[in-house]
Design a binder for these strands. Structure first.
Lengths: 246, 246
DNA sequence: AAAAATAAGTGTTATTTCGACACTAAAAAT
DNA sequence: ATTTTTAGTGTCGAAATAACACTTATTTTT
């Protein structure tokens, strides 16, 4: 780490000569409503950029790690707790915040939208936007969203992260719509179910979801053993992944 | 970004209530000497941790981005400029630096070791260590190195980044040794050359490398068009990538 | 009660890709 | 001339992939 320190540091307890910076965390929160992949945005209620759409974020405090800060902000602003949350990238351009130089570490979260839908709109004035209809965002948040989209697509092409967007019980047609929505493509359903079942990640349940269709589709749930064991393996959920925009 | 700001901010020009933090950048520099994958370390000449091995790093200054800071530090401490440098992860645990809380963004670099070998050891007191013989490092640098190893393996299994470690002209046997070294495995040379040539990334040259063997091996160079075009595609350089430790 | 509409569920086959495997060629050293 | 060393190449069986269409269960309509 620090290498350009003066010899006097030997007795110092602080790196007192160094510049200190504002540090923030911003969260790109993905949700899936059964049709479209969406992100959660809030409308800023104050200057600068009052009234404009923004990611959820906040400053990192003295006694918390970045992971703690991102979890705190997610919890504070949305009530959301214990969901998939992963560091995406740290954005450090000097002029990204017009008020004062601020370095921001972006995290992305994947949540089951239905668990939080009412809670969110009531308590926190947050709103879901389909990825194709994201409004103009403050600062460099647009760039963060683009990076998050690329990351989620990249990762989902190889690893089973999209299950984090579904409820504990889901049907294969629901899963397929999710993949088709994330990759903006259509997939042959015979090949899709073969692929997915071949992973060994799913447990078929006796009950059917009668809401989605007349006939009803069987519910499945994740086999958590296999899920954790195979998470890092390269699984192929998507045909011809190379030809897709990642 | 910042959301928990007081109303008085409306007329403020700074986020004056917020804590400021030390921000550092650390670089994991990979090089390949023809046999082994190595990283470049320096011996700290001052407290804290005087005499112990460390990654190259330094504090982020007021008027530079993180990318600029990492490039500056790489250049300052090693003379290295214009190489592959990618943000890895930001390490933000509160106690990672015993002197004072410092958040550090780690970058990894891939360089052609031969272009810098003498320069480095002479001018900057840096030393190359094989990945399997990395000494105890200061702070959380061990963790950073582990993360960088995972990243380089993961990425190299799918994308042609390892060419950044080779000189402009290289032979297929050299390339194979590099892959075998990175993945700590052996690969059938017939399958390897088929795979590699099938990517369309290589241009065969007329000249041979006579140093490596009696017969001599043809030199190849990257087809830069295809290299940039296919960089993001999923290429398979490694058989059974799932069975390897990524 | 019969017919129509809707979405779920399932199998085969041709093509492509993958991985295992062994010999010949070129040059240098003895 | 013989030996040594490393480069370079092809086949074939197995596995994975992608293209493709009909039947079933249930509700809705008539």
């Amino acid at each position: 780490m620090p290498l350009t320190l003066s010899k006097s540091l030997l007795k110092m307890h602080k790196y007192s000569k160094q510049t200190r910076h504002l540090l923030a965390v911003d969260c790109i929160i993905f949700g899936f409503d059964g049709e479209t992949l969406k992100i959660l945005l809030i409308k800023r209620g104050f200057e600068p950029e009052k009234g404009n759409w923004s990611l959820m974020g906040g400053f990192v405090e003295q006694n918390e790690s970045l992971d703690q800060a991102s979890n705190r902000i997610l919890k504070q602003l949305t009530g959301i707790d214990g969901v998939y949350l992963e560091q995406l990238h740290t954005f450090g351009d000097t002029n990204r915040d017009p008020i004062e130089r601020t370095v921001s570490t972006a995290y992305f979260a994947l949540i089951d939208i239905h668990q939080y839908e009412t809670q969110l709109s009531n308590d926190y004035h947050a709103e879901w936007f389909p990825l194709k209809q994201v409004p103009k965002l403050i600062f460099d948040h647009q760039e963060m969203v683009e990076a998050a989209k690329r990351r989620i697509r990249y990762k989902a092409a190889l690893h089973p992260i999209l299950f984090e967007l579904l409820p504990a019980r889901f049907t294969i047609p629901q899963l397929q719509i999710l993949y088709e929505s994330v990759f903006n493509t259509t997939i042959d359903k015979r090949n899709f179910s073969k692929r997915v079942l071949a992973t060994g990640l799913l447990i078929k349940l006796a009950e059917k979801d009668k809401a989605g269709s007349k006939r009803g589709a069987y519910y499945y749930q994740l086999n958590m053993q296999n899920y954790y064991a195979k998470f890092q393996a390269f699984l192929n959920f998507i045909p011809n992944p190379d030809t897709l925009i990642l």
